[in-house]
Write a protein that binds this DNA or RNA. Sequence first.
DNA 1: TTGTAAGCGTTATCAC
DNA 2: GTGATAACGCTTACAA
Lengths: 342, 342
Amino acid sequence: MKTRSSKAARLEDVAKLAKVSTATVSRALTLPHKVKARTLERVQQAARTLGYVAHGAARALASRRTHTIGAVVPTLDNAIFANTIQALQRTLDAAGYVLLLASHDFDADIEARVTRTLIERGVDGLVLLGTTHHPDIYRMLESHNLPYVLTWAFDESGNHPCVGFDNRAAGMCIANHLLDLGHRRFAMVSGITAHNERAQERLAGVREALSAHDIALSPGSVIEKPYTHSGGREGLREVLKGNEAPTAVICGNDVLAIGAIAECHAQGLKVPDDVSITGFDDMEMASLISPALTTVRFPTAEMGVYAANHLLARLDDRSVELRNKLPTELIVRASAAAPARK
Amino acid sequence: MKTRSSKAARLEDVAKLAKVSTATVSRALTLPHKVKARTLERVQQAARTLGYVAHGAARALASRRTHTIGAVVPTLDNAIFANTIQALQRTLDAAGYVLLLASHDFDADIEARVTRTLIERGVDGLVLLGTTHHPDIYRMLESHNLPYVLTWAFDESGNHPCVGFDNRAAGMCIANHLLDLGHRRFAMVSGITAHNERAQERLAGVREALSAHDIALSPGSVIEKPYTHSGGREGLREVLKGNEAPTAVICGNDVLAIGAIAECHAQGLKVPDDVSITGFDDMEMASLISPALTTVRFPTAEMGVYAANHLLARLDDRSVELRNKLPTELIVRASAAAPARK
DNA sequence: TTGTAAGCGTTATCAC
DNA sequence: GTGATAACGCTTACAA
């Protein structure tokens, strides 16, 4: 019972069994309404008995369509982009498309390489993350005339179709909230800003809001850490080292915030009474874990749906909006007024 | 500057420019050592100036290889499988392969459909999650003679190549740990067991260990919830409703455990003094968040590497191990002896 | 409504 | 080492 490698059935085999031409089989399978009901049935029957599965490469070569969308993300190590990818995949699947996924660990060269690989694989469209990309990438997109959309990005220049949030505004929002509560001594446990414009923008937004109140973040009060719990713990420890302890610590995202809170507990600091911890809720989990955590929420899943629909619309030659700024939301879970001391 | 759609260059164009045949270009690009150094250079130069990118479908059609691996997971909504997928993708990328990803939301029919789609797209190999699959899936795998590997699964029968852990043993392990501490009144907040053998096995393992001590989980003390924080909160609430409150609650995974702990806090219950919470650390985060949480750790990333290498080896016609049971580890963070009362 | 046949852009098998 | 040329399995005018 082992040697049953009777070669996968081809269109021709189905045609023979159904006693029609290959053209008819092809039509029956892709445009069922274009063939007579009786022949359609014969073809379907034949396909079923042979266990026929179309050969995608041949189909793609002939039709110049792969029904495949590529997505390139920095990482999947954590759940940050998982929501978006999941929503993307679902929406594409419903439209008969398939997702080709690649990641690059925040390395611009790797990103260019894997993107090229996806294009080579013939993706009909491409989802990229952020606006900052290797020039080769934009060059390839143009020369192949490939539909694409940038996610987790809002391109100010208006040159690229994109869907995302305004991370800078989110940063300002959270800083202003803390300023309103009376805080004046700030620190930030930021994500690694290198090749990550989202982290950069959040930090920039915080700085901008603070500087409007003549407050500057000293070098020692901005610590960059990877988006991990231990990053958050270490970050908080380092931020507290300075001679003037901050009353408010802004964390680059929720994973960092959770780590920071854990470290506070470990050090016997009460949150938010001794120190206020806030963050950006990439993973939509911070708020559930710590009811004391005020965050900015990003509609990450909606973004995946938008991105998919944008691409699908362009593949159908429907005209579509090129820019979508999704709304973010400040979720105030607990207010900690700045301590009166000093 | 807008109309530059000068059609992507083909192999023939490169050949013309380099004044060689298409055959030579093909060789130069895929088997560089098979052509003279001088021609190689001419070809590469020509390819570069034309911005040549190979046509994957044509290549696949001719070579019967797509250099693509498919993976079908239940969901990406949470980070549970993200580690594995990330490790898988990295390992494949290093070997020149690309990842085609699909999810099915724990629906067996959808799973069969998307798997079929991946096969149709010509994947060279397939990564499936778990052992329980639609018969059509196994049928297609066989008729296409397609290399595959089951992950997050350990197939007792030995019929399928697989890499995973023994979830039942993990369940027994955690239950025995609690029994050792003197607990006698148990409850479990399990994941949804339908079409999820991992959740089933964990529950079964717990039941088995308990029954060895003549303890049975009453219907009301096993609550199934989706792997979300709110699932954990609700689960704990329901589990406490019974007339005899449990001293130990075992959670189906870390997300549930975190939710359960949050609910304990909300209800003023101290963990682990009033009630002991334990779980399975799918996402490797529980322990960091709550130092009071004893868990079983699964090497999820290693699993992705194993799965990828297994497939790669088979594609190279190297013989490989078919079964890998990865070690799990009980991480005891805090011990809560069962309360003496009653 | 169905059939015929010409591609689609590579790779692979031969000769040379 | 290199060049013709026949596949590869399907779609799609165009004809019938």
